[in-house]
């Protein structure tokens, strides 16, 4: 087995990869353009469908492992009063190759893993993660809303991906590429590609990442948040927030969920759905008491959770700087701007 961590892919490597992997019975998930300007991860059987140029997928990678809605169990009331419960089986163990997520989305899986795999191990999440290989395409042109470098990432970051692909031509991935193997899973992926890839020649290095200025310092942000819970900053910064869930739902690390039953008279399903701490009902008790009654307290929670509580609990920030929340915000709000402001406050 080759020990070289860098491989060169010939110009039709992607085509070949999709064909080879599909033929081997694997599911290949890749970025495709459905509507003009909208790229999302969907199943592909040919490389032609893969979007060549895109900033990032509209929906984050997390949905491949933590779907927007999923069945947990099905139930049926029998005539004798008994209830039949059918626990939803685990996802099929077929291998899944995600071919072309962005480095930020791959890094975000580290945050998701922390949540779904501490103390209790979420079996469906685990099954989907175990069967998947993440092949990330390095970013060549970060969008104006991107801020990965401010939260410890990079357009060429390799955290979370099994293989990181650097385009050597103009395209992100279509032409000649360098493939950087990060894990054993990544090595297996390379092995499957046969002669379409070969160990990179001596001295070949990945291109340098595109410039993306750091906008704030997360340590300073954390330091201010440590003391800033009662600051009147929150009321001001939250005034324009409309309380929708677009930022959370498009966020690659937001993981809050709801569990609901949906049923007809005698049968139904228990489902898990994405939920969002910005919604006013999120913490509302049946008694009417709401620990976070105002929008500003919910906005504060979202930021505190990502940049203070989560790092304290799990040792990492729950944000990868993908910029989706900024692109999606109805009111033009920017998390990066808020954090830049927080950073400035800390530094006086």
């Amino acid at each position: 087995m080759p020990t070289n961590k860098l491989y060169e892919g010939v110009s039709d490597w992607l085509q070949s990869a999709v064909e080879t992997l599909s033929a081997a019975g694997m599911t290949v998930i890749a970025p495709t353009q459905g509507e003009p300007g909208v790229v999302n991860l969907t199943r592909v059987t040919s490389a032609e469908a893969i979007a060549e140029r895109y900033d990032n997928t509209l929906l984050p990678l997390k949905g491949q492992f933590f779907p927007i809605t999923e069945t947990l169990l099905e139930f049926e009331r029998c005539e004798d009063g008994d209830v039949e419960i059918q626990t939803e089986p685990l996802p099929a163990p077929d291998e899944v190759i995600v071919l072309g997520c962005r480095p930020c989305d791959a890094a975000a899986m580290g945050t998701m893993d922390k949540v779904f795999q501490w103390d209790y191990d979420d079996v469906r999440y685990r099954a989907r993660r175990d069967r998947a290989t993440l092949v990330a395409f390095a970013c060549t042109t970060p969008s104006p809303e991107c801020f990965c470098t401010s939260v410890g990432g990079s357009p060429h970051g390799d955290e979370g991906s099994d293989v990181l692909v650097f385009g050597l031509g103009g395209d992100d991935s279509g032409g000649r590429v360098l493939l950087k193997v990060n894990t054993d899973k990544g090595r297996q992926f390379i092995d499957r590609l046969g002669d379409r890839v070969r160990p990179a020649s001596e001295g070949v290095q990945p291109p340098s990442p595109p410039e993306l200025a750091r906008r704030f310092d997360t340590d300073a942000v954390k330091a201010w948040l440590d003391e800033g819970f009662d600051s009147d900053f929150w009321q001001q910064m939250a005034l324009s927030c409309l309380g929708c869930g677009a930022c959370s739902f498009l966020c690659p690390t937001c993981h809050c969920f709801d569990i609901v039953d949906e049923a007809t008279w005698n049968r139904g399903q228990r489902r898990r759905n994405w939920d969002c701490c910005s919604f006013s009902l999120f913490t509302l008790h049946a008694s009417g008491h709401n620990p976070r009654p105002e929008q500003f307290s919910r906005c504060r929670q979202r930021i505190m959770h990502k940049f203070k509580y989560f790092p304290e609990r799990f040792g990492r920030i729950a944000c990868v700087g993908c910029g989706r929340c900024i692109r999606a915000c109805a009111a033009g709000r920017s998390l990066a701007e808020v954090l830049t402001e927080v950073d400035a406050r800390q530094k006086g």
């Binding site: 949540v115 779904f116 501490w118 103390d119 209790y120 979420d122 993981h255 809050c256 969920f257 709801d258 569990i259 939920d275 701490c277 999120f282 913490t283 509302l284 008790h285 620990p291 929670q301 959770h305 203070k308 509580y309 989560f310 304290e312 609990r313």
Partner: peptide
Amino acid sequence: LENRMKCGIGKCGRCNVGNL
């Protein structure tokens, strides 16, 4: 405490208060 909960196992985020 009786915060609202959905999962009961530290995942759904609903009963998060501070780092607990």
